[in-house]
Amino acid sequence: MDTSVVDQTKLETFVMRAIDDLSAGYGGVMVSLGSKLGLYKAMAGAGPISPKELAAETGCAERYLREWLNAQAAGGYVVYHAVSNTYELSPEQAMVLADEDSPVYIPNAWKVPASMWFDEEKALEAFRTGKGVAWGDHHGRLHCGVAAFYRNAYRKSLVPEWLPALEGVVKQLDAGIDVADIGCGHGHSSVLMAQAFPNSRFHGFDTHSASIEEARRNAEDAGVAAQVGFHKANAVDYPGKNYGLICFFDCLHDMGNPVAAARHAVEALAPDGTVMLVEPYANDRVEDNNSPVARLYYAASTTLCCAHSLSEGGHLVLGAQAGEARLREVFQKAGFRHFRRAAETPFNLILEARR
């Protein structure tokens, strides 16, 4: 290329942007190591700590810890005290890195890009052929990472915020209704609702057998197995009628035929039933989706969401940044007359549909 047309200032700025991203990728490996070795947990609430003290606390080698701690300090993931040559995890950093029940706990999320790297050859083949890659054909880190990451977000918002935003649904759940959780994955959403609404019955459906097995274990561990059932089925032929609530948690955009899924929901709903659609946050126009969150979603959509939709025939490949207008169109085509945005977060749209 003709380098005479290159603006050196713009070049240097973009190179540093690319280096920032590369640094973040390296940092993700450090986060995973820190989580799996219990380093963040050992630092949480401990105050300033030296590499030697952290080594004694965790049973890890001091020299490795010193380098790891310096990487964390360089990235702003721990605080370095130069006078005492010690390192400290602030309360805010601990919420993100050490508290596994925190809604902002991030280490599990790094399993997703790890799976994307493991599956690079599949992605290359999909790009070249246009074929899909089914959810179950990805590396196992994907399923575990997505389930663990979303579990905490749902725990924070599903029962206290999202369900109350739906018209009359909490009252119905308290009285007792049947609920279908479509694309339930590891079942965390069903389990959370079952714990909050003991009079209702919950039915989780997913096409991934390993996830269904894990969901059943999660229900047993939570003590709600008698109230929650999980079954292998897809979004267009799961059994049951007269559901008071049908939920799609971050999954409709992955489906090969979302209109057919919405149409089956129309048929399976009770006359006064509601669909709760939780989707990744997105504006309707590409130029308005210019943020780190949108970039993350578009990247995941490229190798995961669109790939699965194409593996199911790809009748309508929504992708993870569909936006409210396209989702509304899906439900209108399926026969829903009521569709509204009930709530939103920086990461999700919570939408309500009724017949």
Rank of each mutant, 00 (worst) to 15 (best):
D7I: 15
L11N: 15
E12V: 15
D20G: 12
L22Q: 10
A24H: 13
G28R: 08
S32V: 12
L37C: 08
Y40L: 09
A56K: 15
T58I: 10
G59V: 08
A61G: 10
E67A: 11
L69S: 01
A73W: 13
V78G: 03
H81Q: 14
A82K: 12
L89G: 11
E92Q: 15
Q93L: 14
M116F: 09
W117S: 13
E120R: 14
K122I: 09
L124W: 10
A126M: 11
R128C: 10
W135P: 08
L142H: 06
G145L: 11
Y154C: 04
A165Y: 01
Q195K: 09
D206T: 03
T207S: 11
E213T: 14
R217V: 12
A219E: 03
E220F: 06
A225H: 01
A226S: 07
A226G: 10
A226F: 03
V228N: 00
G229Y: 03
K232I: 08
N234E: 03
K241S: 11
L245P: 00
L245R: 05
C247Y: 01
C247K: 03
G256R: 01
D272N: 09
D272F: 03
M276P: 00
Y281K: 01
R285M: 07
D288I: 05
N290K: 05
N290Y: 12
L296K: 06
A299R: 13
G314A: 07
A325C: 08
L327A: 04
G335I: 12
G335D: 15
R340V: 04
E344T: 06
N348E: 14
R354W: 04
